[in-house]
């Protein structure tokens, strides 16, 4: 068991080292995210009252679309040079590889959110983090996105037109997560009754628990030839 966590840590550390060395994904993710936020502000009058109804949507679309950019990049590093094959040859559990990469993707997503959140709040003069429960929503959504994002980046990297394949596979599966994230964020932005967010938190939690378990079970046979 100790070896399992050691392996997860080794993969995580290596991924973060590559990322901080090149800053390739986080830079493009952050710029793309800010660009999305800016472009979306043209569809509504940013100072109007109706913004509270769409702010959650714009925020999460910006995060998810720029996240897609980063996922593809991270997996490309594994395929170039055949490293993924080499890691699979090592005496470690394949799911340790998965969870290492998943955690690395999650760290990138959290960094992205730390960059986008304050700027978004200033642009739209909205306080997204008005309630501590919003931190839980941020965490659960980031978890869900990174979890399935990591799996589908492993899958789509082996296909032709991989850049197009990842969002095509990932977005439909993530519909419950996207809905939950947007609608619960809107509750906090509008200052509504927080009880309304409980059901969304339940959906996010159920989604995460089920798919963590499913991936844990199927991942070894998906990567084994």
């Amino acid at each position: 068991m100790i070896n399992y966590f050691k392996a997860v840590y080794a993969i995580l550390k290596k991924d973060l080292m590559v990322e901080f060395r090149t800053k390739e994904s986080i830079n493009s993710m952050a710029v793309f995210g800010l660009l999305t936020v800016t472009v979306f502000s043209f569809i509504l009058e940013p100072s109007s009252d109706s913004k509270v109804e769409v702010a959650g949507g714009i925020f999460w679309i910006a995060i998810i679309f720029s996240g897609l950019l980063g996922l593809g990049k991270s997996m490309l590093n594994e395929v170039n040079g055949g490293n993924f094959e080499a890691i699979l040859l090592a005496p470690i559990d394949p799911t340790a590889i998965f969870f290492g990469k998943f955690l690395a993707n999650m760290v990138s997503m959290i960094l992205l959110e730390i960059i986008i959140l304050p700027i978004f709040s200033v642009f739209y003069s909205i306080n997204i983090l008005s309630h501590p429960l919003m931190l839980l929503i941020l965490f659960l959504t980031t978890y869900a996105f990174s979890l399935l994002g990591t799996l589908f980046s492993v899958i789509s990297v082996k296909s032709r037109s991989r850049e197009a394949m990842l969002p095509l596979l990932l977005l439909p599966i993530l519909i419950p997560v996207i809905l939950a994230a947007i609608l619960s964020t809107n509750i906090f932005v509008a200052g509504g009754d927080i009880v309304g967010s409980y059901n969304w938190i339940k959906i996010l939690s159920v989604f995460n628990i089920i798919f963590t378990a499913v991936i844990f079970v199927i991942f070894p046979s998906v990567v084994e030839e």
Binding site: L169, I175, L179, L183, V214, I218
Partner: peptide, 21 residues
């Protein structure tokens, strides 16, 4: 096969979330 499994398990969660919406 991975997609066939995950996609199908996702369906009830999609339904619940859309109904809630």
């Amino acid at each position: 096969a991975a997609l066939g499994i995950i996609g199908f398990i996702d369906v009830p969660i999609v339904f619940l979330s859309i109904r809630l919406w």
